[in-house]
Simulated assay, not measured.
Amino acid sequence: MQDRIKTAIICKGMPDFEIDSNIMYNHKPKAGDVAVFEVLELGKHSSIQGLNGNNRYIFPGDIIMAAFGSRYATGQLEGLIPKEYCEEYHILGKGGAIGVITSMHVKLASKGPTTLRMIGYATQDGKVINMRYLSHKRSRFNAKKKRKSKVILSLGASMDSGKTTTAAYLCRGISQSTKVAYFKLTGTVYAKDRSLVRDCGACFVSDFSTLGYPSTYLCSRAELLDLYESLTNLTNHYNPEYTIVEIADGLLQRETSMLLQFQPFLDTVDSVVFSGGDSMSALLGYNMLTEWGLKPIAIGGLFTASPLLAREVEEVVDIPILNLDGLSDPNVIDLFKERPELVNV
Rank of each mutant, 00 (worst) to 15 (best):
N287T: 02
E338H: 15
V332R: 10
S328R: 03
D334F: 01
L342A: 08
D325P: 04
E314W: 03
M288F: 01
I321A: 03
T290N: 04
L294D: 08
S328H: 04
V332C: 09
L289M: 06
D318K: 13
I299R: 06
E312T: 06
W292Q: 11
F336E: 07
E314P: 04
L289V: 01
I333S: 09
I319W: 12
V332E: 10
S281H: 01
L335F: 12
L289K: 02
T304W: 02
G301E: 12
L302M: 10
W292N: 09
V332I: 12
T304Q: 05
R339P: 01
G301K: 12
L302D: 03
K295D: 04
V343P: 11
L324A: 12
N323D: 15
K337P: 09
N323T: 13
G300Q: 03
L308M: 14
S281R: 04
G293R: 03
L294P: 00
P330D: 14
N323L: 14
I297D: 00
V317K: 10
L284S: 10
I321N: 02
P340R: 07
F336Q: 06
W292M: 10
V317N: 09
L342K: 10
L342T: 08
G285H: 05
L324P: 01
G301N: 11
E314Y: 05
R339L: 00
E314R: 12
L327A: 12
P340T: 08
P296C: 04
N287S: 02
D325S: 14
M280L: 10
L289C: 01
T290D: 03
P296T: 04
N344C: 07
P340D: 07
S279I: 01
G293T: 03
V313Y: 07
L302K: 11
L324H: 01
T304A: 10
S281P: 03
L327Q: 09
L309N: 11
P296M: 07
G285N: 06
V343T: 10
L289H: 03
L335A: 08
K337R: 13
D325M: 14
W292C: 06
E312C: 03
N344Y: 07
